[in-house]
């Protein structure tokens, strides 16, 4: 469906995107994850034909962006990070204009506009000037603009940034819904968002792809360090000593006391060893009950750190 072939973008000496290769299959929702300035937006701008790559090319349904840009652009709906809205138009006028520049048939225009306004729930503001809308509504108008013409490919650059939690959940479920009919590329710097919505994740850092996998595999691979957070009822020193002596425990440290008579500790296991059961039996035998135990999710920063160092070891 989408092939990104050896795409490089240079701004003078600075390399924004460095030989990026990936493909997206029909019906897939691909997450594009990376810190600010990693090259996510640049890659998306290249796929949509907003800017040109220094080297390499992009193909959508077999059409090359350099050779047949109009065929490619017809097939893509793009929602940039800052929705491209004309502040002096009403929502309806704006969507009408977008339908015109996307060359939608006059006959079907009205009906498809109604459908899209229903879908993203902006029907009640259709007569209002865009400059008077709230951030959340502007974001939705931006999404509506991308949906016009029901393009087979949707590219969404940070679609939930700046929204309140309720709106974030709504937009996410909307994207999931859209994923049934569209191929979607979505960028984000929030890990849970990507793992909630996407079937596959590409992590990009400093213009290079550093990892590409399903969210499950990625987190499995990344959480192999197996970090657990525990709250145990018992004296600090004995509990810590017991845990440290357990086989497979690499490190354990006290995080503090949040409830009187208990202690919170962070346990790090050796690679590929599940220490949850031994930990439970050992502590229960000593009659130090575990009040809670949970695995600690890696933060995005830690994942990046891990992925980038892994890559260095491989190369």
């Amino acid at each position: 469906m989408i092939q990104v072939i050896d795409v490089t973008k240079r701004y003078g000496q600075h390399v924004a995107v460095d030989h990026v290769n990936f493909t997206v299959e029909k019906g897939e929702i691909l997450g594009f994850l990376g810190p600010n300035g990693a090259g996510k937006t640049t890659t998306m701008n290249i796929i949509t034909g907003y800017i040109s790559a220094t080297e390499g090319t992009v193909k959508v349904e077999g059409f090359d962006i350099l050779e047949e840009p109009e065929e490619v652009k017809k097939r893509i709906g793009y929602m940039p990070e800052f929705p491209p809205l004309y502040m002096d138009m009403t929502v309806q006028e704006y969507l009408d204009f977008v339908s015109d520049i996307k060359k939608i048939d006059r006959a079907t225009k009205k009906r498809s506009m109604e459908k899209i306004m229903d879908l993203v729930k902006i029907g009640d503001v259709r007569k209002r000037l865009i400059k008077n809308l709230s951030k959340g509504y502007k974001q939705r108008v931006g999404l509506a603009q991308a949906l016009i013409g029901t393009p087979p490919v949707l590219i969404l650059d940070e679609p939930t940034v700046g929204l309140d939690p309720k709106q974030i959940i709504e937009i996410r479920s909307l994207i999931k819904e859209l994923g049934k009919e569209h191929t979607i590329i979505l960028s984000s710097h929030i890990l849970p968002e990507v793992s909630a919505v996407c079937g596959r994740v590409i992590i990009i850092n400093k213009g290079k792809i550093v990892a590409s996998d399903t969210p499950e595999n990625l987190s499995k691979r990344l959480s192999s360090a197996g970090r657990l957070s525990l709250r145990v009822a018992g004296p600090e020193k004995q509990v810590l000593k017991l845990v440290r002596e357990l086989e497979g425990v690499k490190n354990a440290e006290v995080q503090g006391v949040k409830e009187p008579g208990t202690v919170d500790i962070l346990v790090e296991a050796e690679m590929d060893i599940d220490i949850r059961r031994p930990l439970f039996y050992a502590l229960s035998r000593a009659e130090y009950p575990i009040l809670y135990m949970k695995s600690v999710d890696l933060t995005l920063e830690e994942i990046f750190l891990q992925v980038t160092t892994e890559e260095r070891e491989v190369s």
Binding site: Y50, K73, I76, Y78, P80, P84, L85, V98, I101, K103
Partner: peptide, 10 residues
């Protein structure tokens, strides 16, 4: 940034 809309349209 509305040029993004125009330039990514057909």
């Amino acid at each position: 940034k509305t040029d993004q809309l125009l330039l990514t349209s057909p």
